[in-house]
Design a binder for these strands. Structure first.
Lengths: 339, 339
DNA sequence: CTGAAAGCGCTTACAG
DNA sequence: CTGAAAGCGCTTACAG
């Protein structure tokens, strides 16, 4: 039904091969032939069928973008659109399309990745997260599929393309900043401990305390799975202790928003009673009252660099793994003060 | 290099046709043949090449998702991930993939849509926005490509698949709510007037005022393009008038956040001095201080319904256009009070 | 500079 | 119940 290369060939009195070559702008075709063929393509309204082309060239010129759990937090979190923006920009530049995972369980997502890659729908994969013992990453590795990850891989980091912030460093810096303000009892509300980013930020927090000679007190550390569904009570318990923390480092602004809510329920004010600091600098953090101090992690660049890395592997046949460390910096606003 | 249907056929001592049929689980193939072929597929690690299949069945089983301007607000706005969540869920259910637009100008996006559709990369399109005189929508219509839109189309609404809230109705309700609190000088800070959603919400605002016998004062109406880049001064000007508004309806929570910032700069408090209300009920609005009253527009359902509509057209060969009106309701929080 | 032929990996009438 | 053949719409050595 649609007009094909054959229709054009017939109409232009050339062979399909020739039409194919003018599409590719092959230099061996004479200008006048090109001209003629192009006119015919125009009048017939020809448009190349990419499915057919892709089949023969054994490429898809598309990237699979895998997010962890589409039904969950990933979608609430402004991180996702922002990182996608970076990926989009770079992919578009290179004329690559984006194919998105849609599954909502690990099993579903795994199946999708297999289907995308073995089914030749994508030339490479960008993993939007990094966690411990990730079946998907192992699959990609053992099948030698080009991929890059946003976040430090748990293992084999030398052989994997990835982009990351210096999460340990910046978390230490943030903690130090609070220590510098005079805080000694500093809590940490972390994320999912399966995620490397959570681990790294916690590690930075620990190091800063250690360096300052402050003992790490496990009662001041809340990880997501430890408190799952019970964040409110857990946090409130922590705050009701007689030696409650005077400052809290949270691993994400969204978490900070919630914590602030719990504090409010307890009649505690930010920053007068408790200082608080977030990560990821969501657009809205500056609109809070007081505006939330947070760490800008250059989300968009995280995305574009991740795209750059897979594309280098796909197109350049890059052998060695690439890595980018993207800037992170603390943005001081009004949510911290001296204790 | 990859194992194909032929390899399996050879190994299993059957023809490629037979292998193809066991993949399709065709009932005319004997159980023992199926069994044997499946074993071979297993041991060889066969996986079907979708590009090849798609080429012959003339389908792609993927949906193109078009967002307006990937470099802009679309990405800052939590609306996008949430609507995508709805689309994902429905598409995944129907075993459809998602192909995302990546362009950042209207021209680029138009080219992508043409490439996706004429290039047979997608079976249908979901438009994530609706605006006046949209070239892309016209293209989809005249080429009879299955599509649905999130938002009411500017014209030909009877023949187009779309989902929407009753924006006129809910905007009127919101305005009425403020009138009911005793406000008479109510401002409206709108969005891009090219967008139908902005038009509809403004219309609802007008109707409510008219019905209450309050004259519509154009000085109380700010549209995005009128104030572009100058929102701050424009809003502040409005507020410094001797008859400044005592309440403001904003077309999106993000706009409300900004307006609140400007008010704060003027030393005006919410809700003591000015009441304010937003739309779209972003996750963070409840964390503001005071928490922002907003309209929940069921974003996720907007997405899943849009997917449902295109899929009905693609799969069911649906002839008549479908439509869903998704619930919208005002969520009262702390940002409004009597004047 | 151009064409005939083979092939990418599948599906599907048609025939038996 | 199964196979041989044609074909989906392209690209690309090979030959001239």
């Amino acid at each position: 039904m649609a007009v094909t290369i054959k229709d054009v060939a017939k109409q232009a009195n050339v062979s399909p091969s020739t039409v194919s070559r003018v599409i590719a702008d092959n230099s061996r075709i004479s200008p006048k032939t090109k001209q003629k063929v192009r006119e015919v393509m125009e009048t017939l309204g020809y448009y190349p069928n990419f499915q057919a082309r892709n089949l023969v060239i054994q490429k898809s010129r598309t990237l699979g973008v895998i997010m962890e759990n589409s039904a969950q937090l990933a979608f609430q979190n402004p991180f996702f659109p922002e990182v996608l923006r970076g990926i989009s920009a770079f992919a578009h530049e290179s004329k690559f399309g984006l194919y998105l995972s849609t599954g909502s369980t690990e099993e579903e997502i795994f199946e999708e990745v297999v289907s995308m890659t073995l089914g030749r729908q994508v030339d490479g994969i960008i993993l939007l997260y990094s966690k411990i013992n990730d079946r998907i990453m192992e699959y990609l590795q053992s099948n030698e599929i080009p991929f890059s990850v946003v976040g430090r891989p748990y293992k084999d980091a030398e052989t994997i393309n990835y982009v990351d912030n210096d999460n340990i460093g910046i978390a230490a810096e943030v903690t130090n900043y609070l220590i510098g303000l005079g805080h000694r009892r500093i809590a940490f509300v972390g994320g999912d401990p399966d995620h490397i980013v959570s681990l790294d930020r916690l590690e930075g927090y620990r190091r800063a305390l250690a360096k300052a000679g402050i003992a790490v007190d496990s009662r001041y550390i809340a990880e997501k799975n430890l408190i799952s569904g019970q964040e409110g009570p857990a946090i409130q318990n922590m705050m009701k202790s007689s030696v409650s923390p005077t400052a809290i480092v949270t691993h994400d602004d969204l978490v900070a928003y919630e914590v602030i809510g719990y504090l409010r329920d307890l009649g505690l004010r930010v920053p007068e009673d408790v200082s608080i600091i977030g990560f990821n600098n969501h657009t809205l953090s500056e609109h809070l009252k007081p505006p939330l101090s947070s760490v800008d992690i250059s989300i968009c660049e995280l995305g574009s660099r991740a795209a750059e890395l897979v594309l280098a592997q796909i197109e350049g046949g890059q052998e060695e793994a690439g890595r980018f460390t993207v800037p992170a910096r603390l943005i001081e606003r009004g949510s911290c003060q001296r204790p």
